[in-house]
Structure formats: structure tokens, C-alpha cells
Amino acid sequence: MFGHIETRTAEADEALRRIHELAPAVNGALSQIKKQAESGRTAHCEASAKCLKEAIKSAKLPKDYTDEATDAVDTILLHAFMKATSIASRAAIEAAMKDEIERRAMKIKEARAQLAGAIRYKAPQEFRRKCERMLETALFSGGIRAKGPTRAKPDDTMLEDEGFMEMARA
């Protein structure tokens, strides 16, 4: 009664009510984006994040809440791009070890694109250096094995001869 001063305005009450109404939907959307990020599907993550950011902005929520939700989305997107970069880099190294030059080049290109996305979302400098080293390793690996026999390593049909194997055992 006396001394009780109402400090909240009607606008603040309305904003708080909107936050409580939209919080479960926002949290659900964030968890969906997080699941997509774990698998490294950046295209799906970006599309979902864009829709979520637009929904948050159009709801006319308080700036503090929108900033917090936007930061959470950006953090998830950074994780998605880092995961996708790591997957593509490992695939490039694997392709290089198997002497699959075309696949190696494709995976290196994909990894560089994903790394650019991670840099866009402020990836740590250490991650950038690590990825560059992995891509450099993939680039310099593979492509040196000859397909078939060479002068230095001719095709040894003698080893397949059963008579030779019996002589070697004796």
C-alpha cells in the first residue's frame, strides 16, 4: 500500500509475457539446429538459423533476449562449420592415402569452403592453423603411386607360380 511503488511498466510486462511464450519454441529450434550441427550439415543449420533469427526479430522481443538468442545461434553455427571442416579435412587425407586424387581435390575444396564459414563465425586462430596444416598434409600426400608395374617394380608373376612357392617352403 504505502511505500509500494510499481516499477514495471505495461510494456515490460508484455515483453516478459512474449519471452515466456516464445522461449520453449526458441529452445526447441536451438536443439534442432544443434543436432544438425553435430552431423556437420552446415546448409541445414544456416537455413534453420536464418529462420529462427527472423522469427526472434519479428516477435519484437527485448534486445537483451534477442542478443542472447542470436549469440547462441552463432555459437552453434561456429560449431557446425568447425565440425564440417574437420570431417572434410579428414576425408581429404583419407582420399590422399588411397591415391584418389579427384576425391582428394574435391574434399580439399569443400574443407576450404567450410573453413571460410568457420572464420566468418569467428573461429579460434588455433583451429585455423590446425586446419591449414591438415589441408596442406592432404595436398602433399598421395599421387605418387604408379598404377600397374614399373621398371623399378615389375609385375612378379613368378611369385604366383605354385612351383616357386613349394621351392621357397623347402
Rank of each mutant, 00 (worst) to 15 (best):
M158T: 10
K98M: 08
G163A: 12
M82N: 05
T42F: 04
K153S: 09
K50L: 15
T66K: 06
L52A: 10
V26D: 09
D64R: 11
V26E: 04
K107M: 15
E38K: 13
D74R: 04
A23P: 00
H20K: 15
H20Y: 09
L52F: 05
C45T: 13
P62Q: 05
M106A: 15
I33L: 15
K63Y: 03
A43C: 01
G163S: 11
T157A: 09
R120W: 02
E110W: 00
M134C: 00
A10F: 06
E136G: 14
I33G: 09
F140C: 02
T7V: 07
V26R: 07
A43G: 05
L77A: 06
E132P: 02
K107W: 03
D155T: 05
M82V: 08
T70M: 05
S31H: 10
D74T: 02
L115E: 03
K53V: 14
E100Y: 01
E100L: 09
G163D: 11
D64M: 06
N27I: 02
S89R: 01
D13E: 15
A138P: 07
A55W: 04
A15D: 12
M106D: 14
D156K: 08
L16S: 15
I33E: 06
A15G: 02
I87E: 06
C131H: 08
E11I: 10
I87M: 12
G3Y: 04
L159P: 00
R17D: 12
S48Q: 11
R120Y: 11
T157S: 07
A29K: 12
A170L: 09
A116Y: 03
L78Y: 00
K83P: 00
D161P: 00
S89Q: 05
R129H: 07
F2W: 01
K147W: 02
K53G: 00
D13K: 14
R8Q: 14
M1Y: 04
I5E: 13
A146N: 09
E94I: 06
A80P: 07
E94A: 13
Q125L: 06
